[in-house]
Each structure stands twice: as C-alpha cells, then as structure tokens.
Amino acid sequence: MGKKIKDPGLGNSSSAHAKRMMNSDGSFNLEHLNKPRRFSEAYHYLVHISWIHFFVLTFLGGFLINAVFAVIYLVIGIEQIIPTTGDILNDFLNAFFFSTQTFTTLGYGFMAPHGIASGIVSSFEAFTGLLLFAFITGLLYGRFSKPKASVRFSKHLVLRAFNNQNAIMFRLVNNRRSTMIYPKISVTLALSKVSSNGDYVNEFYALDLERDTINYLPTTWTIVHEIDKESPLFEFSKEDLINQHGELIIMISYYDESFNQEVHQMHSYFLNEICLDHTFVKAYYYNDDGKMVLDHKLFDSIEPLKS
C-alpha cells in the first residue's frame, strides 16, 4: 500500500469539505482564531508581507502621522508657524506641509516654529521621524537580505504512461540566474479517508521519486513518482485518482550561492488538478550557435500524449 508515515505535523483529523492544506505560494492554509497580538511580531510581519503591501503601509503610516501632527499644530495655533489664511483647509495644508518638512528633517523654508509650543511639538516630531526612518531602513535591509528560495513550480500536474506503468509528474525551475546547488526534494501525499466510525482522517505517505536529489540545476527538473505496486496510488484507476481528496505536499531545499546558505520552499498540488495523458513540452533547446536556451514561456506548456 506504500510507505505510510506518521503525521508530519499537519494533523490527522479531516473533514468532508476540507480545503487544501497548503496554498500555492507555499504558506499553510491556516486561520488563527483568538491569537493574542504582540508588538514584537510587527517586524516579522513587515519583513514577510509583499512589497506592494509594505510600501502601501509605509506611505499610509507616514501620511497619518503627518496628518496627526498637522492637527496638533492647528490646535496650538497655526500662527506660531505661519500667518493664518482664514480658511481651515488651507491652514491644514500648510500645517501638513510644515509637518512633512519637520518629520523628514529636510529643514525649514518660509515656515518655521515661532513659539515655545510649536517648537516643542516640532522637536518631538523630528525625533520621531528619525526613529521611524531608522526602523524602515532596518526593515528594507531585512527584506533584501532575507534568504529566500525562488523556485517556480509548473502549473500542471500530469499523469502519463512511463516505463510500462503510470507516473505522476510535475517540474520546477529556478527563477534566478544563479545555479541551484545540490537541490533535494521530498513529496508527501495526504489522503483524506473515512474511518470505520465515520470520521474523516488524513493518512500520510512518503512518495518514492525517480530522483530526489541532483548535483545542480541550470534548467528544468521533472519530478516523477511511478505508480507501481509499492505506491499508495496503485489501487486507484486514472479516473478514480483525480476524484480522491488528496494533496501532494512538496518541499525543496538547496544551497543558494547568493545567500551562501541553504534555502527552502514549499508547494502543493491537489489530485483533482491532474491532467490525464499529457506530457510537458521541452522548455530548453540549442540555438544555431550551439548554446543552450531555456524558454520560460514554455515552462508551463503541456500537450496530449501521443498514442
């Protein structure tokens, strides 16, 4: 029946309407409820969110801070900075521009504090701006220096004839120009089944692969699991296989010469995503000069298997 293993950390309990355990980006499909929030987690959150979210939060935070200080300048009197225009909106804009100059420590132009209250507030704001800029600089360094794998997995999971039997295949490629050194991969199958008492449980199997490690990867690597008598999928026909509530959970590790350390990445496929009797289109070829060319546009391409 295959190499059944203990729970790798995902939990044995399942449900009739359970969704995938892992998202396509490698994060676990897990929702935290009633989890206490800690300020110490802010750095971890800001380092790991996407660049778009990071810059949106940065600009939004800067705008809100300057807006708050602009209101404070209005409360203590805009006359301590610049003569009032008599219009609340224009006075707010002047206070906001003055706050931005103070916060970024750019220096004063025609607007400057002329009173004790405005001087105290502007000094505190300048000190706050220095602290926040140092914090953001640290975040930028942390985001750029964070070791992170950049592996692209094929959109398709195919099932085709291979070595006089069937095999499940997917492939991967390095998104960077650097070479992956000693990449190694493991694939765990999670099957949701109904137990004797009617409960849904997860069973886990370590799938045997044609090759689970290579020396280096400059092009693509097709991962193959042959469905032989030792495979946990041997009992299913092609049609039954794609109807199973099963998920392939993949982890790849390799030495990245850019970071000088080992990095990891995870991915998953649902069994119902299998494309029957298809094969991958070769994504690399040799040009007229004899140089190998890797065409990334062909990486996800598949075609029906020729009879």
Rank of each mutant, 00 (worst) to 15 (best):
R171C: 10
S13T: 14
L276H: 02
L159Q: 07
F144W: 01
A67V: 12
M1G: 11
F54W: 14
T137P: 05
S307K: 00
F39G: 11
I52R: 15
P113Y: 05
V121M: 04
V187E: 06
D277C: 01
I181P: 00
H156F: 06
E125S: 00
Q244I: 05
D240M: 10
S154E: 03
I242R: 09
I136W: 00
A149R: 02
K238D: 15
Y182F: 07
L294I: 15
E230Q: 01
L10G: 00
S192C: 08
F153A: 06
I120Y: 05
R176E: 00
V293D: 15
D300Y: 14
T219H: 15
Q265F: 12
L276R: 11
E125C: 11
L74R: 03
T220S: 15
K193C: 07
N34M: 10
I249P: 09
P36H: 05
L106E: 01
A95D: 00
D277Y: 03
F299N: 11
L233M: 12
L30C: 13
H32E: 06
A117H: 06
Y254V: 01
M251H: 14
H156Y: 03
R176W: 03
D91R: 07
I88H: 02
Q261F: 15
S186L: 13
G138K: 07
R176G: 11
